[in-house]
Nucleic acid binder design. Structure first.
Lengths: 175, 175, 175, 175
DNA sequence: CCTTAATCGAGACGGTACGTCTCGTCTTGTG
DNA sequence: CACAAGACGAGACGTACCGTCTCGATTAAGG
């Protein structure tokens, strides 16, 4: 086994919780690594030891939060509409964070990759899974359109509400 | 007439040119207000007198650049496909700047408004103008889908090439 | 006579009054040339046309103020003690301005000369005039000592009160 | 022991040396905190962490310089005249800095206190120590007069040479 | 037990951009 | 020409974060 003091799991949790709280309280831009460290009772070095920067840290903090969300679907394949509703509900709640992360990712290649792998692709896969009875080419097309609509709404700061879901479903119907 | 020394138009131009050059040379993130001032032979205060920050300045710099682009369509209404081709060509060239501006706008309410008014809406209107023979409800739908696809491609750093245009047109056809 | 519009005496007065008021209200350091111009309803250029900087302007403003002070001595030569009392009273009232001017003069050769000519030397001469019955060598000595004591008190921000006058007179007695 | 990285003594020295050099090269007014930082190879924040501003920093820089001056008096109490000679020699060399510091102190309450404690009072005490055989009241009187004469000479930018020392001693003799 | 190696909190450090401030000059139109 | 208004170049200011570093203290695992 590796020598030396092992990573303190409690510290990791404390940091993620602190990051989450602070971002929810003040918004992403108004939170610094130093703030998170102080709130978590940790040293800045401990943050930088495990995350390359604020983006990756906050991404992890909210990845956990998202994955705690109820994924309690039955064994049956979920419908596209229910999946989209759920996706929009989540995106709507976390909208400010998602906007900030996607924005930061434009300036940070590494964060861009992480964001794709941890948030963008998994959600695309969820949608794709609802479309197994479509032709493969159509499937990609629909996923692209839906995902484009959702991200656009986020970046333009427009609501991802029931009305939007109806609109999106109407679009998909016609493809 | 207004009292005091009038705004020096030459300085305004010099600043916009400097901003444009520097952003093209180094990329948005690597350019500072001080750099632009120095390159333009201007004082920092002069920049801040007329623009609230880097985002708004660069937006103006590239707004001018975009509006200098050939808009030499004949009297005939342009086709959707040619408009989309042109739009993607422009967006592709300016992609790094557009990404950066949209990103910055997520942290800056004022820049967000400016970006919508100066870039997002005008381009949407261009598309809309190609769709006058569609039913109004469909029109909005198509504009939304296209614009969503384009912005998503930009933010995900994927190419806005001919393949994408074909893909987008195929989507629209089926709506 | 010089061609062109003659200097507007009212403007000159307004500027001096504004300078005086502002310095009394906020203190020398917190007043800028722009402030004075605004308060006087004048342009900054008008200030710089007639004074080289804030120091010289404030010096003029308070020179006038000082010279408005009652100089109502009878035909008889004033006593050293009454002169010193009067001098300390004036210096005490204007202490903050005098400190600031002397300070500024340390960074500004021109102001230094003006300060000497308009404030330091005249006051020395007043003292000298009370000492005509001393031997010339002693006279300079006494004037130097008194002036040194007063300026030191000013710069060290200690009171120029009756107690100080008594102290100073005691010193002079013993020389 | 105190937590955190301890203050780097080498950096402190480097900053003081840089401040001293720059002030001697260019004069107090022409040196900025940024200049000192650059010359010292330090960050500006490090300067502001330990000193409130240029005044306090330069005061420290020259306090060290002064206290490195030979204080090698024998066990015997030094004479007033030799002390005064030494004092004037030091003040003469450092005259530009002393003038600037005293000037700055007129605009800065905190610097004023520091200047008194680190420069004015210690020098007064040196003089006082030479006057132990005088009556206490006379002692204060003499110290005041001498210190007044010296500071006045500094602020009026007149030489603190041998002639001045003779003059000052003549004054004291007669008190 | 005692060394070794990595972790932890704390906070100093070099670096750099920020947005503001003041200075003294300039460029208008008006009297 | 003087004058009010105010834009302009210049550059210092003090602050804010960044990401790295240097401490002493802590915590296992391996000798």
């Amino acid at each position: 086994m590796r020598a030396g003091r092992p990573r303190d799991e409690g510290v990791r949790r404390a940091i993620l919780v602190a990051a989450q709280e602070l971002v929810l309280e003040r918004g992403y831009a108004a939170v610094t690594m130093g703030d998170v460290a102080k709130r978590a009772g940790a040293g800045k070095q401990t943050l930088y030891r495990w995350w390359p920067g604020k983006g990756a840290l906050v991404l992890d903090a909210f990845s956990e939060w998202v994955s705690q969300a109820p994924r309690l679907r039955g064994p049956r394949r979920p419908s596209l509409s229910s999946t989209l509703v759920e996706l929009c509900r989540g995106a709507s709640e976390a909208a400010p964070v998602l906007r900030a992360l996607m924005a930061e990712a434009q300036f940070d290649e590494d964060l861009h990759r992480r964001l794709l792998a941890q948030l963008v692709r998994p959600r695309g896969d969820e949608l794709r899974a609802c479309l197994v009875d479509r032709r493969p080419a159509d499937r990609e097309l629909v996923v692209n359109v839906l995902s484009g609509l959702v991200w656009q709404r986020l970046m333009l700061n427009e609501p991802l509400d029931a009305r939007f879901v109806r609109f999106a479903l109407r679009v998909v119907e016609r493809i």
